[in-house]
């Protein structure tokens, strides 16, 4: 619990550095640090699959963002701060945190997920954990949910990924342009 809070604070710190840094490359490196800490948190919370995926996605994001950031020779930029916009943004973010704090009081505490102790209970997680092995034959229940119980969901995910690839290709291709 203490380690989790320290790691979460590190993620927040890296996020703030990423948002406020004056150099775009520093921004990109900081977001990489935040993602890496997030993957360590996932590993701590019992999700090794998520930790692996997060690292892979993180590396790809970093490559894409560095490719974008080095379009300029000089990656620093001068920030012209508009005081009103900054104040409004801070008030909005603070309001979000305050409302979240009020709403979280009604939530079950950390460490008590919505899983009934009774094995015959009909909650989703209990059904998956009880019958996952004989229904799918997968020892890893996350993969059983992803590839068997919710396979259509994963098909939709693959569709989204291919749509985004088509979108990227359509946006950055050079041939076929007829601008004068």
């Amino acid at each position: 619990m203490a380690i989790l809070i320290v790691l979460s604070l590190f993620v927040i710190l890296a996020a703030i550095v990423a948002v406020e840094a004056k150099d775009l490359l520093s921004t990109v490196i900081s977001i990489g640090a935040a993602g890496l800490m997030l993957s360590v948190i996932f590993l701590m919370l019992g999700a090794p699959d998520l930790a692996i995926t997060q690292v892979v996605v993180e590396v790809l994001c970093l490559v894409l963002l560095i490719r974008t950031a080095i379009l300029r020779e000089d990656t620093t930029f001068e920030a012209r701060r508009d005081r009103f916009i900054v104040a409004a943004g801070l008030v909005g973010a603070g309001l979000l945190v305050a409302v979240a704090y009020a709403a979280l009081q009604a939530m079950v505490g950390f460490g008590n997920p919505l899983m009934a102790a009774d094995p015959e209970s009909l909650t989703l997680a209990n059904q998956y954990l009880n019958h996952g092995l004989e229904k799918t034959g997968a020892a890893n229940y996350v993969m059983a949910v992803l590839l068997d119980f919710r396979a259509y969901d994963t098909l939709g995910e693959a569709t989204v990924i291919f749509c985004s690839i088509i979108g990227v290709y359509a946006v950055i291709r050079k041939v076929g342009k007829t601008t004068t």
Partner: peptide
Amino acid sequence: TLPFLLAMIVVAV
């Protein structure tokens, strides 16, 4: 609720 609140602070940033 502190870990949840920290996650919400990340969202706010």
